[in-house]
Amino acid sequence: MAAPILEVEDLGVEFLTDHGWVRVVDGVSFSVGEGETLGLVGESGSGKTVTSLSVMQLIPVPPGRISGGSIRFAGRELVGMSEPQLEDIRGDDIAMVFQESMTSLNPAFTIGEQICEVVRRHRGCSRREARDRAVEVLELVQIPDPRSRLGAFPHEFSGGMRQRAAIAMALACDPKVLIADEPTTALDVTVQAQVLDLLRSLQERFGMAILFVTHNLGVVADLCDRVAVMYAGRIVETATVFDLFESPQHPYTEGLLQAMPQLGERGKRLAAIPGTPPMPWQMPTGCRFHPRCPYAETACTEQDIPLRALAGDRHVRCRRVEELTLEGAQ
């Protein structure tokens, strides 16, 4: 693995709810190397989005708070950093692309204005230079006739175009880390593929690290080098994409793989994972997955399961990892 540019260690995030302070992210650790793409995978409510927002220090406070742990960008600690310093990093060193381009772009300003704004904030350049840069990045994301498109408003773009514009906005200052939170989920399938291709080619060209947050393992296989699987606020397994798909070590990962439609297996039934993820204020004791796990034993319910290191830079949070042989995907 290349030198880590982003390291998250033992991150804990809590939210104040009707049930008191509830921990939605609990002891999450991962790192992303320079130029690497890490997939952060989990169902909705698993804490993956909160984790990615914490990296940007953008969880809403209140009702949220980072209760512990450390987030380091290029060796600099982000937790507890002053707001002006964080603002210098946001959009410049670490940029973010969100899920819904319809709602994440401001409807009242032109695309050009929204891109120029971030360039001027971090580069301190003139209006004209910012416009030139905006045209450049719009060209990068393959928006045709970018100069005339600067004056367009978000609602005048199609969904795919908007998401491209959002990516252009994120890339405008050459970030070292790009956080993409389900950037293709709201798009049509064909457009999804185009946007993923675009992200891949942009990464090959500029070599930024990507933290790719998704619930879709298919997308992960397409784009990522390594994967961290989250369940109920915790990481349950990390591995390279190849290892994870070939031989998942955690029953939850296996469940996700089984639930994924695969080419050439038309007759096979998709196996949904039974039950639903727990609410963060009523986490099961022991392994948090045990109520839904086909391999659970009484011992699984008794005490917290640590994340164990396996050979080949893999980690897994399952006490039966040695005994079980789980089914992978092709």
């Binding site: 946001r90 959009g91 994440s104 971030v118 906005m169």
Partner: peptide, 9 residues
């Protein structure tokens, strides 16, 4: 949130 993610105060 997007605007904040761009580093705007």
């Amino acid at each position: 949130r997007t605007a904040r993610a761009k580093g705007l105060a």
